[in-house]
């Protein structure tokens, strides 16, 4: 896709809503150095979101969309869940496949784009919840890693099936209780970041979204490595404040608590990934 597609015809500009004119004039297209520091000044690629007030997922969305190095040539594949309510509002190409097969669809899209546009860089990023990535879609997720698909997978882990009332998921920690899982989770949380490493991902990170700059760094690293080497995986803690009984202003506090324990920052890079990251740092892109 060309950025020209966002250029509004001068004759009809006066009829366009300001938010659309801003997308052309104030969004950070064509600038790989864009990042979360642009948020107060640049037009964001998500206008409004339909998540609950104070939802940490909405912060994750803002940081990720602000950090994509190549938004005009990025396709996001999402999945069913709270996140799927936001995708229709973002100013990028998104694809909503069946629940759980997001990595299979993303693989196909990436391969076709490489064939159709061999001279252009096109990034494919999967953004899905823990149910789609770790439970229902684990097969498709891992198979895409085994096949070394050049895609980035970002899991929004809220440790529960939140928008269906609170059932435990593979990502729920042992013993945690929810409204529809009153007996408590009987097994341990699936260490998806470790599965990703064992399955062939070249860059893996686990973190909360309490630090915007850190989210930007891992998103950029994951995308650059996926472009040149192979699959990458980011595991983000985005707690469901409703399901764990917190107020709208307590999401950040919750993430900061988990920063010290089960979501302590963790990063893995293969040797090829280290090379790419080193190169990008030298180019001033990281």
């Amino acid at each position: 896709m060309s950025v020209k597609i966002f250029k509004i015809n001068e004759e009809l500009k006066e009829y366009m809503p300001q938010e659309i004119v801003d997308l052309e004039e104030k969004a950070t297209w064509g600038n790989p150095k864009r990042g979360v520091m642009d948020l107060p000044y640049a037009k964001e690629l998500v206008e409004e979101h339909s998540l609950c007030a104070g939802c940490p997922e909405s912060a994750a969305f803002r940081y990720i969309l602000a950090s994509l190095p190549n938004p005009e040539d990025t396709i996001i594949v999402n999945s069913t869940g709270c996140t799927s309510l936001v995708f229709p509002h973002i100013a990028l190409h998104t694809v909503h496949p069946l629940f759980g097969n997001q990595n299979a669809v993303a693989s196909g899209i990436k391969r076709v784009l490489e064939w159709r546009f061999p001279d252009k860089v096109k990034d494919v990023v999967v953004i899905a919840g823990d149910g789609a990535t770790i439970d229902i879609g684990l097969d498709c997720t891992l198979q895409s890693f085994f096949r070394q698909e050049k895609i980035t997978t970002i899991c929004f882990d809220n440790e529960v099936y939140a928008n269906t009332g609170g059932q435990d998921s593979g990502a729920t920690p042992k013993g945690m209780e929810f409204k529809m899982a009153p007996g408590g989770k009987q097994w341990d949380k699936v260490p998806m970041w470790q599965l990703a490493i064992d399955s062939g991902c070249h860059y893996v990170a686990r973190l909360t979204v309490s630090s915007p700059k850190k989210v930007e760094q891992v998103v950029k690293k994951a995308i650059y490595v996926a472009r040149e080497v192979g699959p990458t995986y980011i595991h983000l803690y985005t707690p469901c404040i409703l399901e764990i009984g917190l107020n709208a202003d307590q999401g950040l506090w919750e993430m900061r608590q988990r920063d010290k324990e089960r979501f302590k920052f963790f990063e893995y890079m293969s040797d090829e990934a280290k090379e790419v990251i080193k190169k990008k740092k030298e180019e001033g892109l990281l």
């Binding site: 060309s2 020209k4 597609i5 966002f6 250029k7 509004i8 015809n9 001068e10 004759e11 009809l12 009829y15 366009m16």
Partner: peptide, 22 residues
């Protein structure tokens, strides 16, 4: 009600059509 194919200047035809629509 003009749609994206004439609102955005993505080719010469679209530019011409925008003028004519006005």
């Amino acid at each position: 009600f003009p749609g994206p194919q004439v609102l955005y200047a993505w080719n010469e035809e679209a530019k011409k059509k925008a003028k004519l629509i006005k």
